[in-house]
């Protein structure tokens, strides 16, 4: 029972981090209808800046720089490539982001090499004891920060001018443009926000118990894709629920992998994709996605 509770809390915490990544992904999709396969590379870029800068300027400044850096990379991708790509289909735009991903990931993993870079976070490997349950402090912080950011984001989405502009664009880009919303600025903002969220997520994917930022970090980031699609690509609620489902399933299946040995080693890593496949079989548009209807 105690193991179960620990796994559950860990799962929720990791899930909240996945939700941050998935949220950025969904925001980009809503604002620009681009499925951004370069999302993992945004995350890697953010984490890399933090890892490289923290010895010289301290952790908090490095974190700020990492968030700013990832936001900048996101904005640059939008400004230099997505905006200028003159293509008919959105699948082709998705492939462009794959091209960007190949570029960024190759260069960053080359820089990282075989090292495991520490991010210099202040929490270290301290463990918190809540009655019989012990949890890594980083996991608690991750959960709190993710919850805070997600709440702030959803409020901003609902009440600020930027949020309204974003939602209007998602609803009907042409009408929104006629009403005076600057579409370029909306999509630029979406990419920058997604980059920033990814950088925060990078921090929490690389702290204790994970050893640090290495070539495998992109793989961890990949698990946010099932989170986004099983919740429904155009739903922010979906991203949250999807992230939690993925996080908890992964934690449970890794935690009980001795009981699940018949499924093979490392089943926890594959679990998110299994869940996604099952959910897509039942609901092709995801749990909260709008089913597409068209009137002819």
């Amino acid at each position: 029972m105690i193991t179960f509770l620990e796994l559950l809390v860990n799962g929720i915490s990791v899930g909240a981090v996945y939700a941050l990544i998935a949220l950025g992904f969904v925001v980009i999709f809503k604002a620009t209808e681009v499925v951004n396969f370069a999302h993992a590379s945004l995350l890697l870029a953010g984490g890399f800046v933090v890892a490289k800068l923290h010895p010289s300027i301290g952790f908090w400044a490095a974190l700020a720089a990492g968030i700013g850096g990832a936001a900048l990379v996101g904005a640059l991708i939008e400004f230099l490539i997505i905006r200028r790509a003159n293509v008919a289909g959105h699948s082709v735009l998705a492939i462009v982001t794959i091209g960007v991903d190949i570029l960024l990931v190759t260069e960053l993993t080359r820089q990282i090499g075989t090292d495991v870079l520490a991010l210099g976070d202040p929490w270290g490997d301290r463990v918190l004891h809540l009655g019989p349950i012990s949890i890594a402090e980083t996991r608690v912080v991750a959960l709190a920060v993710a919850a805070l950011l997600i709440t702030a984001f959803l409020l901003a989405f609902k009440y600020t001018g930027w949020g309204v502009a974003m939602r209007a664009t998602a609803e009907d880009a042409e009408t929104a443009a006629l009403m005076g919303i600057r579409l370029g600025r909306v999509s630029l903002g979406a990419w920058a926000v997604a980059g920033a969220l990814a950088a925060v997520a990078a921090l929490f994917l690389c702290v204790f118990p994970t050893p640090g930022l290495d070539r495998g970090t992109t793989f961890a980031a990949m698990k946010a894709f099932p989170a986004a699609i099983l919740g429904g690509l155009d739903s922010t609620t979906g991203a949250l629920v999807g992230g939690l489902i993925v996080g908890v399933t992964e934690a449970m299946m890794s935690g009980y992998q001795n009981e699940l040995a018949f499924l093979g080693r490392g089943i926890g890593d594959v679990a998110p994709f299994l869940v996604m496949t099952v959910i897509l079989l039942i609901r092709p548009a995801g749990l909260f996605g709008t089913r597409e209807l068209s009137r002819v």
Binding site: V35, F37, G89, H90, S91, A94, M222, F225, P226, A228, I229, L233, L263, G264, R265, G266, I267, D269, V270, F273, L274, M276, T277, L280, L281, P284
Partner: peptide
């Protein structure tokens, strides 16, 4: 059942599952 119902880039993400399931099978079966 998935390939017939999902459109464009959605299918792209869904097919990511095949890669990871495939790798799992190749290493474990």
């Amino acid at each position: 059942p998935i390939a017939g119902r999902l459109r464009g880039a959605y299918l792209g993400i869904a097919t990511l599952a095949l890669i990871y399931l495939g790798q799992h099978l190749l290493f474990n079966a």
